[in-house]
Design a protein around this nucleic acid. Structure first.
Lengths: 358, 358
DNA sequence: TCGATTACGGCAAACGATTACGGTAATCGT
DNA sequence: ACGATTACCGTAATCGTTTGCCGTAATCGA
């Protein structure tokens, strides 16, 4: 007998398997001596209950799926951690299956299918773009899903996100108020609602300041450090060169910094840089990168909480969308108002950096 | 009928459930027309096979457990990614359950138990310290486990690691060859084999250079940025202050950098810093941090491959230990030979920085 | 002493797949 | 036209639990 079953335990303890089951999950009163005998049998046999059989019977696995694009993107570890912590707190025998979709719609569909086959109790996901009819019908079936970090425009589902357009507006506006006029954009090529919103915020800030949006100033690249660097090189070679740049993404921002280093240029003296997503290092080096920080951990936490709520109250209420606040981390990477162009009248004047303006 | 079973499909297609099963996993020849009808029934009912029932019957879940200390530690995302990629490549319906043990032996034991209850097919883990009899008997039972990043001295199991003592030796030696004599150590307080080995490498480098190991120069702290910063403050307040410091860990190294920034001191002018673990930012800012880089992705990959090997050839061969190479990333955070103390005769002379020495 | 609770605990039917085993019909060779 | 293959496919056992339904014995109150 390689691995003992509940029946073996029952036989050894001289009771029925039903009783063993009931003492294990104390689902009904059992006489103390009986309990004792069962426990003895369990530990002497080294019995461990089989969660598979258990799940089959109870139709509930105690497993939730987590689909993100890439754990290697420094934005995600925090949200994963947030999710995991509430899952763990929820039940000690509840845990999560991690999937990296790589922004690949096909891979996402595949993984989603596996998760459903494995009968996860719910899913939190950062959806990749593309045509998601399967998602739509999944949701329609009432399966608990909550989106995190992004959402799909046409799909009704709980979502926990960040106000990307406002955040981008704020940070680009910060640049503008420092006097910058030629502000470039490093756009990560992702099929993600988040990126589009950031572009939108960028445009809005420009428009509000009476600046014209110039397509020649958006440098698009794949979402990777290496491609970001290449795009950064293109940016540095353009003329007239921008005086500032907004990276829509960790990867492209880092790539930009690398391009600067490669050209022997300095930040912020030669180019002001701001990025999206904060990270622990940001303040430890020079220049400290000015970024807008997303509450990654809280995003994960909130999403998981929402999911459990959905899973428990089977009520199919309307989708709730939570927007968590971002915070502007002002550091050194855009210096102060040392831009060479003469600033003209500024909208939204007054505030933090007002005193630095000419 | 909320979710259709294989029997519903069978009925609809006018065949037996066995046949349906066989067309799904094509485990035996089925007449083309029959297949056709089965597929039609499947798609018209929206049937999706139940991996739980399947696992129960086949006693194999297609799930592997991954236990690490903290996904938030920038070292781990790469290894997780490495593991996931080979798991995915192995079988498209195979995936992994992620557990953060937080270096907590109790949590580790708990999670391990859940994983075993869930009948994962194997486990790759970065074991926390402490008394692990349960691990010992698990291994004795022949359950496939491979260690990654660390191992437990007394336990016979496959492991994929890095030569921590050599790596530390190299990087401390680098400091020594630049002329540093008062070299401090930031020691992350972790019950991990890795940290102890790094300390060992540090001592070895000192000894090889004829330098005395001074306990007053080891600054211990919890493995967190904040505690690292506090320890860094203590270090900066000591006298005579060290001219260089080796951070055994991402967290404490960053903490150290923060402490420097807080005191308005510069690196490398006021203090040379080297760290363990590389990260994408390291070269993008100033000073570029000199580190020893671990091959995180390869560690994960190799571990997962080893695991699958173990899982397939049920042979219980002797434990294999793989040691992957680290690489010294020399950047700017320890400057060149600008140390104020006069260097004396150096062992291991000759090499990369030889020309920089007086 | 009797009847009604109460407290325990057993039996057996699910759960939804896989698969060993055996049966039937079609095909073939002669 | 008949026996032997061959090609398909169905029956039922099995995996290890959970749980509804009952039965028995003990306890209690009157």
């Amino acid at each position: 007998m390689p691995v003992p079953t509940i029946h073996d335990v029952a036989k050894k303890a001289g009771v029925s398997s039903a009783t063993v089951s009931h003492v294990i999950n104390d689902s009904r009163p059992v006489a103390p001596q009986t309990r004792e005998r069962v426990f003895d049998a369990i530990s002497s046999l080294g019995y461990r209950r089989d969660a598979i059989a258990r799940s089959l019977r109870r139709s509930k696995t105690g497993t939730i799926g987590l689909m993100i694009s890439d754990i290697t993107n420094p934005f995600f570890p925090d949200v994963v951690r947030g999710v995991e912590d509430v899952v763990y707190a929820y039940g000690q025998d509840c845990n999560l299956i991690l999937c990296n979709t790589e922004e690949n719609g096909e891979k996402e569909r595949l993984y989603l299918n596996v998760l459903l086959e494995k009968r996860v109790d719910g899913i939190v996901m950062a959806p990749a773009g593309g045509n998601q009819n399967y998602l739509r019908e999944l949701l329609a079936g009432g399966f608990p899903v909550v989106f995190v970090d992004r959402w799909i425009p046409g799909i009704e589902a709980d979502a926990v996100v960040v106000d990307n357009v406002d955040a981008s507006y704020q940070i680009v506006n910060h640049l503008i108020r420092l006097g910058h006029r030629r502000i470039a954009l490093m756009k990560a090529r992702l099929d993600s609602s988040a990126i589009e919103e950031r572009v939108e915020g960028y445009k809005a800030a420009l428009a509000a300041a009476g600046l014209e949006f110039d397509p020649a100033y958006v440098f698009e690249s794949h979402s990777s450090i290496e491609d970001g660097r290449a795009a950064g090189m293109r940016l540095l070679g353009s003329s007239p060169p921008p005086t500032a740049v907004f990276g829509t993404n960790n990867f492209v921002t880092i790539g930009m910094m690398n391009a600067l280093a490669q050209c022997g240029l300095r930040c912020p003296e030669d180019l002001a840089v701001v990025g999206f997503d904060d990270f622990p290092w940001a303040s430890a080096f020079h220049p400290g990168l000015t970024t807008v920080a997303q509450p990654g951990y809280a995003l994960g936490q909130t999403a998981a909480n929402l999911l459990f709520q959905r899973m428990n109250n089977k009520q199919a209420g309307p989708a709730v969308k939570k927007v968590l606040p971002t915070t502007l981390m002002i550091r050194e990477s855009c210096g102060s108002a040392t831009v060479k162009t003469t600033p003209t009248a500024l909208p939204n004047a007054g505030g933090y950096y007002e005193s630095l303006l000419p």
